[in-house]
Design a protein around this nucleic acid. Structure first.
Length: 573
DNA sequence: AGCACGCCGACT
DNA sequence: GTCGGCGTGCTC
């Protein structure tokens, strides 16, 4: 009996297309392999996503060529990418692309030892989600992860461990390499194409047993997955900004569900979403306190700028408290980090002021590695890295920096962190502002944990804000924040979809279409987004219907030039 | 994405 | 009369 291949091609079209198989290809064309097909006058590479016995009611053409001698996606991975395309409103082809990175994509006709591939999954592990709420960045959580990984390996399974960025791997990588040596594979965006290809093959063959990676590694081609860990699950770097704008934690949740494997989410300060699920009993909550002697939180002092500047005309960047504390810190021969939330006009003013006030201190300024180095430079070492290195070696007394320096905190001689303006974060007009503030302060104060003179000074016009007052007490912060979210009907009580549109005419057209198909309880909030065009925010308890409308609508090519970008569950950074 | 089809303005 | 603008719609 003849069968027909259902093929997804890399065009922004929602549909799959059917092709006939030439006699000699029967048995070789199976779901998950790539094929070359004739498509409106040209040849395109597409993914076979299924086979059908019935002849579809269209005139068929034949598959021209088979690219892979064994599938690059198994059935589960096809389901996962399908879910990504449904949930994040992108064509299936684009979701498949995201799961199949460039370094690997160009290679052809390589066989991935089929005997490993077809091995039936062992008895399924208990599928559950654990939220590991740990108080510090110390060994407790790594120990926990290692135990879970060992258990998965003992059952003959593979473990997938995600971190928000490469610089966070090192600690666990050293420990894992010590125990498992060549069984470790690494996957992240900065690998060279051949490195990625090499790691891909090792995962696919089952030779790699533990995979450490960043967000895109959530699609790692594991043949015998037994465990997923997402470290620092609340880190916004897990959100992809390009299409499909997936959140690696959400994809991990779906993957764990599909593969029926346990998932561990780790966080110093969990995301509202995750803690909400834990509170309702959907996730198992585990709270880890610091092992050994209890390390004290640093002293947290609030510099109330309202009082500070009410009597004076000149506005200084540094409050009296912060100035005095820097002075004390310098006297003790210890280091200070001054955190600014954005680069810009305020930065130079701050640097000048610090220079004037502390003429003998050695100053350093660090933006981000990205801003201060070109792509080529980043391999050799950038100005940013140089500054950080000087700071680590104690050659800088006062370091002024943005978000990026936060992960460099924790050196021996650092004892003071000053938040120059908490309000630039609290006033960003985003419902996650308080959460972002709390995340920041948690990270900062944990990096000074147990320091004898550890101190955080927060300069603010909002000294009574709950995100500041509750540092060190996550449950209390959560209670206040979740109440705020409930009252304003924000996640986790609702979901959001953000659509950006350049073309104004298309913007109006899309609003009309969305309004016409709007479900009960769904709000459609259009607005101007300045230079970037217009945006439509869709807000509601259940957006499944809206998702369907968006996906169906955008598959029509009349939106091609309108510059439409869909962001499901947006996370502004 | 590409490409054809189609219906309006300005050219040899 | 035709060339070509790009709006619209289709590709198995």
């Amino acid at each position: 009996m003849r069968s027909y291949a259902k093929v997804v091609v890399g065009v922004p079209v929602e549909k799959a297309f059917y092709y006939a198989l030439p006699e000699e290809m029967t048995g070789e064309v199976i779901p998950g392999v790539r094929v070359v097909v004739p498509f409106s006058g040209r040849k395109l590479t597409g993914y076979v996503v299924g086979l059908s016995r019935e002849k579809p009611d269209v005139s068929l053409r034949e598959i021209a060529e088979i690219v892979d001698s064994s599938p690059i996606f198994d059935g589960e991975m096809l389901k996962l990418t399908r879910w990504v395309s449904d949930y994040y409103c992108c064509p299936w082809g684009e979701a498949l692309h995201a799961a199949f990175p460039p370094g690997v994509r160009m290679k052809k006709k390589k066989s991935f030892s089929p005997e490993e591939l077809s091995s039936p999954p062992a008895e399924s592990l208990s599928s559950s989600v654990t939220l590991l709420h740990h108080a510090n960045r110390g060994g407790g959580k790594i120990e926990f992860y290692l135990q879970a990984i060992k258990q998965a390996l003992k059952q003959g399974r593979q473990a997938l461990v995600l971190f928000p960025e490469v610089s966070h791997f090192q600690n666990i990588l050293n420990l894992l390499r010590f125990q498992f040596r060549e069984k470790i594979a690494i996957l992240h965006g900065r690998l060279l194409p051949w490195e990625r290809y090499h790691e891909w093959l090792r995962m696919r063959s089952g030779a790699a047993r533990v995979v450490i990676g960043t967000r895109s590694a959530v699609f790692a081609p594991l043949v015998n997955l037994g465990l997923i860990i997402v470290d620092e699950e609340s880190n916004p770097l897990y959100k992809e900004k390009r299409t499909p704008a997936y959140h690696a934690r959400e994809v991990a949740l779906e993957r764990a569900r599909l593969w029926k494997v346990p998932l561990i989410l780790g966080a110093q300060a969990p995301s509202l979403e995750s803690y909400f699920q834990a509170e309702r009993g959907k996730y198992k909550l585990m709270v880890l306190s610091p092992a050994g002697e209890k390390k004290e939180l640093p002293e947290i002092e609030i510099a109330d700028l309202r009082r500070e500047f009410s009597s004076r005309r000149v506005r200084w960047a540094l409050s009296l408290e912060l100035r005095q504390e820097i002075e004390a810190c310098l006297r003790r021969g210890e280091q200070t980090v001054l955190f600014i939330s954005r680069r810009g006009a305020g930065t130079q003013k701050l640097i000048d002021e610090v220079g004037r006030l502390f003429p003998n201190a050695r100053l350093g300024k660090a933006g981000t590695a990205y801003e201060e180095g070109t792509r080529a430079q980043r391999h050799k070492g950038t100005k940013y890295e140089e500054t950080i290195s000087l700071f680590r070696r104690g050659k800088i007394d006062i370091l002024i920096g943005t978000q990026a320096v936060l992960k460099e905190l924790g050196g021996e001689r650092l004892s003071l962190v000053g938040i120059i303006s908490a309000d630039t974060i609290l006033n960003i007009g985003n419902f996650r502002a308080a959460e972002k503030m709390f995340q920041l302060l948690t990270q900062v104060s944990n990096s000074l944990l147990g320091k004898q003179n550890g101190k955080v000074i927060i300069q603010t016009y909002n000294p009574a804000h709950y995100s500041i007052l509750n540092v060190g007490d996550y449950p209390q912060f959560y209670r206040e924040e979740v109440e705020f979210r409930r009252q304003l009907n924000y996640p986790p009580f609702t979901s959001l979809i953000n659509i950006m549109i350049k073309d104004e005419e298309a913007f109006r057209r899309l609003i009309a279409i969305l309004e016409a198909n709007r479900d009960e309880g769904v709000e459609i909030l259009p607005s101007k987004a300045g230079m970037r065009g217009q945006q439509i925010i869709i807000k509601g308890e259940n957006l499944a219907g809206m998702r369907r409308v968006i996906r169906g609508e955008l598959s029509s090519s009349r939106w091609n030039k309108a510059g439409v970008k869909v962001d499901v569950d947006p996370v502004e950074q």
